[in-house]
Simulated scan of single mutants.
Amino acid sequence: MYRVILLNDNYSTMDFVIEVLMKVFRKSLEDATKIMLNIHNNGQEICGVYTHEIAITKVAQVRNMARAKNFPLKAIIQED
């Protein structure tokens, strides 16, 4: 299994990060807000744990959403 981790940056808006968490990771508004604040305060946060293929897909979805909005938001995978 693999953790998908979102990394903080100084450009992606909090609203955009919440949108990504809700659309890509299917988080509720409350959970997405908590995760976003952890990313903002701690530099990164785990968004979910998935099989390798699903984790890679989630990272690609984050990258595509960020590129479409010209944000540098980045997701990485890490073996659990």
Rank of each mutant, 00 (worst) to 15 (best):
N42R: 14
A55R: 03
A68Q: 12
N70V: 08
I77M: 15
L37N: 08
T13V: 05
N41A: 11
Y50S: 04
C47Q: 02
V24Q: 01
V20E: 02
D80S: 12
N10C: 07
A55V: 14
A68W: 05
N10L: 11
G48F: 09
A75T: 03
N64S: 11
M36C: 04
A68K: 09
N64T: 08
R63A: 15
V17D: 03
S28N: 05
I54V: 14
K23G: 04
D80P: 02
Q78W: 04
V59R: 03
G43D: 15
E45C: 12
F71C: 00
I39T: 01
R67M: 14
Y50V: 06
N41Y: 09
A75C: 07
L21T: 02
A32S: 12
T33M: 04
R63L: 14
H52E: 15
Y2N: 02
R3D: 08
F16I: 03
P72N: 15
N8P: 02
N38V: 04
E79W: 13
N42M: 12
V4E: 05
Q44I: 06
L6T: 02
E79P: 05
V24M: 04
I56V: 10
N38M: 10
D15M: 05
A60E: 10
F25Q: 00
K74A: 12
F25L: 00
M22Y: 09
A60V: 08
D31G: 06
V62E: 04
G43C: 15
M14D: 11
Q61V: 08
K58P: 09
F71L: 04
V17H: 05
I46Y: 10
K74S: 10
N8C: 06
D80G: 07
F25N: 00
S12T: 14
E79G: 06
V59H: 03
T13G: 12
I54H: 00
S28Y: 10
D15L: 05
K69I: 08
M14K: 11
I46Q: 10
K34A: 13
N70E: 13
G43L: 13
E45D: 11
E45S: 15
T33P: 06
Q61N: 14
I39M: 06
I5T: 03
D31M: 13
Q44W: 09
R67H: 11
M65S: 10
N64E: 14
T33E: 07
K74N: 07
L6C: 04
I18T: 05
F25E: 00
V24K: 00
E30I: 15
H52C: 14
D80Q: 10
K23W: 05
P72F: 11
H40P: 00
M36H: 03
I56T: 12
A75Y: 02
D31W: 01
